[in-house]
């Protein structure tokens, strides 16, 4: 194994094993050794996040573990990002994401954002308790192709519907894919809401967006 491969493996392992402090000196060493930042990101940190996602799917990892893994990934990214070449930052399409109005639970939304970001999508995060009109504005102003709506509260579901209706009214519905997720949401319900897709967790959300965007 070359030194580069060893460092990439170490970066990946830091993410999987939740080593949020250890990742920083390893990322620094990686950059100091002159290796391309983009590889450190994709073959190191993102590889680790994908492995963490596999562990989540096999029910070895749960929400706390994924949250710490993503912290590690961000800590490493902070070191690598300034060294990325311009051409490295070619993104897949833009995705507007947010927790709909009436709800402030954002753990699920953040995990989806992280996973999509790791998969190369440019994320426009509107935060939580977001009014329907703000989603529409973001779609218009940023040229997003996907809107991802999240809620944990069954009481806020009607506000998801509002976003879909507003997109319709503004004539934007046909050029936008709407995906929904969160505790009370199901595939059945997503269809009723008029969404293009539903995923039951952050890992599935990446597959879903890839599928919808034909990636």
């Amino acid at each position: 194994m070359t030194k580069k491969e060893e460092l990439l493996k170490a970066l990946s392992e830091c993410v999987v094993e939740m080593e949020d402090d250890k990742v920083i000196p390893i990322a620094e060493e990686y950059i100091k050794s002159g290796y391309p930042a983009i590889d450190g990101l994709l073959l190191g940190l993102v590889d680790g996040m994908n492995k963490a996602a596999d562990l989540y799917e096999s029910e070895e990892y749960f929400i706390p573990e994924l949250m710490i893994c993503s912290d590690v990934m961000y800590n490493g990214m902070d070191i690598l990002r300034p060294h990325l070449e311009m051409s490295d930052s070619q993104q897949k399409c833009k995705v507007v994401i947010g927790v709909v109005e009436g709800d402030t639970h954002d753990i699920g939304k953040n995990l989806v954002k992280i996973m999509l970001e790791a998969a190369g999508y440019e994320m426009i995060d509107l935060g939580r308790d977001v009014p329907a009109a703000s989603f529409i504005d973001a779609v218009k102003n940023k040229g997003a192709k996907v809107v991802a709506l999240s809620t944990l509260m069954s009481t806020a579901i009607s506000n998801m519907q509002k976003v879909v209706e507003l997109l319709d009214k503004e004539g934007l519905r046909d050029s936008i894919k709407v995906i929904v997720g969160g505790g009370p949401i199901s595939l059945e319900l997503a269809k009723k809401l008029g969404a293009d897709g539903y995923s039951k967790n952050a890992v599935e959300a990446v597959k879903l967006v890839n599928r919808l965007m034909g990636a």
């Binding site: 939740m18 929400i63 706390p64 573990e65 949250m67 710490i68 753990i107």
Partner: peptide, 11 residues
């Protein structure tokens, strides 16, 4: 806080 407490399970 929900986020912090979640992580403290390990930390």
């Amino acid at each position: 806080g929900v986020n912090d407490t979640m992580k403290l399970i390990h930390k």
